[in-house]
Amino acid sequence: MSADPNLPEETANPAVDGTELIRFDHVTKRFGAHTVLDSLDFTVSSGKHVTLIGPSGSGKTTILRLLMTLLTPDEGTIKVGGDYLTHEEKGGRLVPAGEKHTREVRKNIGMVFQQFNLFPNMKVLRNITEAPVHVLGLGKEAAEERARGLLDLVGLTDHVDKYPTQLSGGQQQRVAIARALAMRPQVLLLDEVTSALDPELVAGVLDVLRDIAHTTDITMLCVTHEMNFARDISDDVLMFDAGRVIESGTPEKIFTEPEHERTREFLSAVL
């Protein structure tokens, strides 16, 4: 990399190989006087499924929202696929990114929200085709074909012509998953996507996500309290506390022999 003094040092995470997809470098995020993320470093390799766990308020949602550019970091940089997300290089200097640059980098990222956030004024099919048509420039037919394929994947082929309010929470969330996937993102962010669902609807949504995790090479960054699900799909589990990664490893290691006392406490509370 360049030796320009304006660029941040990139020595914090030595794991620079060709497959690194997400990189947080010294990312700090504050809300007022409250520092939620404190010079956070971590990387996610392409194709990996990473689960973030940690107590309430530890900053898990904040990380996903930073990646989705719903928040901007106060310090540090985030890279996705080798490009800066909220910065861009101009004449060797790192400056806050313009709308256009951020949009380009962000296209690689999709997100599913706890509250679904489907567009209630659009039928299911158009919820899914809207962005492929108006962001990727896909033709209407091609977008609808893609949407139908995804609705098949999430088991909702019979519901194309319904409005979101005519669906159950579980069905809405599966539409939201299809909507995110329709953009063919490299990264899928999942923030407690089953927390707002009635208990009997959780399994259907998790099954769909398991299916996607096992049959596609999409990178997943997942915040969940469903520890069995996390164990099934994760390559890595990151344990957060007070805005830092205090422990990481395979699900087997984290769930069966955690090293950190905080991790043990947290797991005994949720398992």
Binding site: M68, R103, I109, G110, F113, L118, A180
Partner: peptide
Amino acid sequence: AGQWEAATALSLPRRRTWSAVILPQ
């Protein structure tokens, strides 16, 4: 706010966010 966030997550252009998502609602 979730509607704005969903539009951002899909990278919908500002104009489209207004005309297809926010104003109709």
